[in-house]
Computed example of a mutant assay.
Amino acid sequence: MTNSNRGVAVLVTGGSGFIAVHCIIKLLEQGYMVRATLRSLHRQNEVKDMLSKGGISSFENLSFIEADLSQDNNWDKAVQGCTYVLHIASPTPVVNYKHEDEMINPAKDGVLRVLKAARAARVKRVVLTSAYGAVGMGNRNRTTPYTEKDWSNLEANLHPYQKSKTIAEKTAWEFIKNEGGGLELSVVNPVAVMGPILGTDYSHSNQVVKKMLEGEIKACPKVYCCHVDVRDVVDLHLLAMTHPKASGERFLATTGKALSMLDVADILKKNLVEVAAKVPTREMQNWIVRAAAIFNPSLRMLATLLGKYAETSGDKAKQLLNWSPRSNEEAIIATAESMLQLGLIKK
């Protein structure tokens, strides 16, 4: 425990989420007072159970408050007395959406609610969890790794989830520039987040590993993606929260090397052997995925990523903040092993 953090309060939004739970663990371990928002306080025990699995034995420095990104209620109370805010909560991809605004408006309105409350409460710095979806989507003919200078192209045919992440982050930067009143902002843009699962609430990126191990994916779509371990995403959030050089900056949380889905399958096969017997060994033609996406809404975001260049650079965080992430392989295997330990994989 770091004594200098004693009494320093941090608000974590979306306290039941995959990244948020791991952030709470690290903050408690480092001696911070943590207040976490939940849309329903009925989930308190579920969150505490995940924290216990992550090694937390005392909850005396943890409290919960009910707050919803789509409502004004309680945000002033949530940030009261906090030095920092980790704004991690965000709407997850909606499969059967009728209009893109179902994802865009909650993300945009939610970030403004949090920033306005933080400004009024004289919070020092907010760290916003954005995404690679706000950096590398909709850009054609790319041949060099994406960096923090890049933005997704809102004029392109983006999936509403990617569009929501981009608009929400742009909204945050615009607010800080025009209305921030001295409030500091840092942004973390994770790629596909892997790593130890602590419960049934985990990143949608982890679903690929689960579906491969269960044999649901018979052949791999030709999609390329960079990965990062959730523990390293947490480290970057805390660096972005406290490091003097992080204010006003955005950081890609990435190991930097893009893998195909078949590469991910090969990593599972190599490391888990018999347990990975159902993991696919071949790729699927793009036209099959696009045709299936017409009838299966859950494939529509995937279909927009087929064959797209996806290399990213994590050099900024490494050089400016001395951040050092684990390898792709370690992150992916940690996901699989934790799912197996929790009995989340159907035999």
Rank of each mutant, 00 (worst) to 15 (best):
N3P: 07
S4F: 04
N5T: 06
N5K: 10
A9P: 03
T13F: 05
G15F: 06
S16E: 04
G17A: 06
V21W: 03
H22Y: 00
C23G: 05
I24V: 13
K26H: 09
L27D: 03
E29C: 04
E29K: 14
R35P: 01
R35L: 03
L38Q: 09
R39C: 06
H42Q: 14
V47H: 11
M50C: 14
M50I: 01
G54T: 00
I56G: 08
N61T: 12
I65E: 05
E66K: 14
E66G: 10
D68T: 10
L69M: 13
S70A: 14
K77I: 01
V79L: 01
V79R: 05
Q80W: 03
T83M: 12
Y84F: 15
Y84C: 02
V85W: 07
A89K: 09
S90M: 03
P91A: 12
N96P: 01
K98R: 13
D101H: 11
E102V: 07
M103Q: 14
P106Q: 10
A107N: 13
V111L: 10
L112D: 06
V114H: 02
L115D: 01
L115I: 06
R119P: 01
A121C: 04
R122P: 00
V123L: 05
K124T: 11
R125K: 12
V126M: 01
V127Y: 05
S130D: 09
A131E: 04
Y132G: 12
G136V: 11
R142P: 00
K149D: 15
E155N: 15
A156Q: 08
N157P: 00
L158Y: 03
Q162K: 08
I167F: 05
E169L: 04
T171R: 10
A172S: 03
E174D: 15
E179Y: 12
G181N: 11
G182D: 05
L185V: 07
S186H: 03
P190C: 08
P196G: 10
I197H: 09
L198E: 06
G199F: 02
Q207F: 02
V208S: 10
K211A: 13
M212A: 08
L213A: 06
E214W: 07
I217V: 15
K218C: 00
A219Q: 13
C220W: 04
V223E: 06
C225K: 15
H227L: 14
R231T: 09
V234L: 03
H243V: 01
A246Y: 09
A246Q: 12
A246K: 07
A246E: 04
R250V: 02
F251N: 09
F251R: 08
L252T: 10
T255F: 07
T255R: 12
G256W: 11
G256Y: 10
M261H: 14
L262M: 14
D263G: 13
A265Y: 01
A265R: 08
K269I: 11
N271V: 02
T281P: 01
T281Q: 13
T281F: 01
N286F: 06
N286M: 07
W287P: 00
I288Q: 11
I288H: 06
R290L: 08
R290F: 00
F295D: 01
P297V: 08
R300G: 07
A303K: 03
S313E: 01
S313P: 10
A317S: 12
E329M: 05
I333Q: 03
E337N: 15
M339C: 03
M339W: 08
L342E: 11
L342A: 07
K346W: 00
